[in-house]
Design a binder for these strands. Structure first.
Length: 390
DNA sequence: TCTGGGGTCCTAGGACCC
DNA sequence: TCTGGGGTCCTAGGACCC
């Protein structure tokens, strides 16, 4: 029997901003948009904040304070749409460097008490508490200690769910937000989990939940009661079987403390849609910059890529991807640019583009190329051709 | 008032090889 | 004239997550 915790920082980006601007506490505020919205200091020493009313552009909300959520705005919502609902809400520019700093702080604080931590992005982790809880007075006591340590280290609150697996813990952490601690056992599933909407399960998104609803299934309990054979007919063997297991709270996935990235990418949405031919110059400049950023990312993280791809989002929001595999691994900006250019030529180029992205896939660690790697790859690394590597 | 940026995994068809 | 079975790699799209 395992004890797995899911820890979720409460309104993370917005809460980090409130540490900087405590005068905003209690006011609806959202994080999103670009750097140009930074609050300006006035002559009397107070800060003048931009509100959603003042915003013009294509940004979305990354995080909303609970006060802003009460007005109906939520992450992922376009800022222009949010302005219609909460025009007086303060708009703060996203400062990812600062969020990453706080992310490292809270993760380090947790690791002091329980070292088996799995990263789930900037503001979430899974923790395997099975060993640590025995030595530290049980799961609930350890959960409380983790919350205190996170608060000491960051000044921020988090919500924790502790159950026998990841799937249930992810659900449980949301049950008492913000600043909550929920411990569930398998016996609690019917009373605590089955009444929840099926959409709350990690892995049931908008499409699947709409299809379930059309089939008369709204709650996790209704999903649990559905015939597994029938689910497999409706959703395919793999996903259908998973839906059945998930609804019954079954999940054996381990907590994984380290993972190698499979791809790195850079993309940007233009302020106005660009036409591949009419705006060739502007598009080419952006394209080159994305390739240079991607090359720098590969270099900084110590990876080489063997496949390069582009992503195009047209003005009608349709997405097309094109990719090519290289003869040898690379992290050279010019080579990436050439390859991405060839990919771009494959895509339909009649419509205006809203977004352009470049992706590096098929990664390998720069220090892990086999000794017999082709000369071109070794030349990239400035390694002598005769020296063998491990 | 149109909807960011960075990822993962799965599926499916075609090429190519034995 | 008609027609195997398996395996891997590559490409493209789509659902989903934070």
């Amino acid at each position: 029997m395992r004890w797995i915790a899911h820890l979720d920082m409460d309104a993370f980006y917005a809460s980090v901003e409130l540490l900087r601007y405590p005068e905003l506490r209690g006011r609806p505020a959202v994080v999103g948009g670009a750097q140009r919205n930074a609050p300006e200091l006035q002559a009397d020493g107070t800060r003048r904040f931009m509100t959603l009313r003042d915003y013009k552009g294509r940004g979305v909300i990354t995080t909303a304070t609970y006060e802003a959520r009460a007005l109906g705005v939520h992450s992922g919502m376009g800022l222009m749409k949010a302005a219609a609902l909460a025009s007086d809400a303060v708009l703060l520019p996203a400062d990812f460097q600062e969020y990453r700093r706080f992310s490292r702080l809270f993760k380090a604080a947790v690791a002091e008490l329980a070292p088996l931590v799995e990263d789930r992005g900037i503001d979430e982790i899974f923790i395997d508490l099975t060993q640590a809880a025995e030595a530290q007075g049980g799961v609930r006591a350890l959960g409380e200690r983790i919350k205190s340590r996170v608060r000491e280290a960051t000044g921020l609150t988090c919500s924790i769910g502790i159950t026998p697996n990841k799937l249930l813990s992810k659900l449980a952490s949301e049950l008492a937000k913000p600043d909550g601690l929920t411990v569930l056992t398998l016996e609690d599933i019917p009373a605590q989990i089955w009444p929840l909407p099926a959409r709350r399960i990690n892995g049931i998104g908008p499409k699947a939940s709409a299809r379930l609803e059309a089939l008369g299934i709204r709650t996790i309990g209704e999903l649990a009661a559905a015939d597994p054979q029938w689910l497999m007919e409706q959703f395919g063997a793999h996903y259908g079987a998973w839906l059945h297991d998930a609804a019954h709270g079954r999940d054996e996935r381990p907590v994984v403390t380290h993972r190698e990235p499979k791809s790195l990418s850079r993309e940007t949405t233009f302020e106005r849609d660009l036409h591949p031919r009419e705006d060739r110059e502007a598009l080419g400049a952006v394209f080159t910059r994305l390739c240079e950023q991607l090359a720098a990312d590969l270099e900084r993280n110590g990876y080489l890529a063997k496949s390069i791809g582009v992503k195009l989002r047209y003005d009608d929001f349709r997405i097309v991807t094109r990719a090519l595999t290289l003869p040898a691994h690379t992290r050279d900006a010019q080579e990436i640019r050439r390859c991405a250019g060839r990919c771009l030529k494959k895509g339909p180029l009649e419509r205006r583009l809203r977004l352009l992205g470049v992706r590096a896939g098929n990664l390998c660690r720069a220090d892990a190329l086999p000794a017999g790697a082709p000369a071109a790859e070794r030349a990239q690394l400035d390694l002598p051709l005769c020296e063998g590597s491990k």
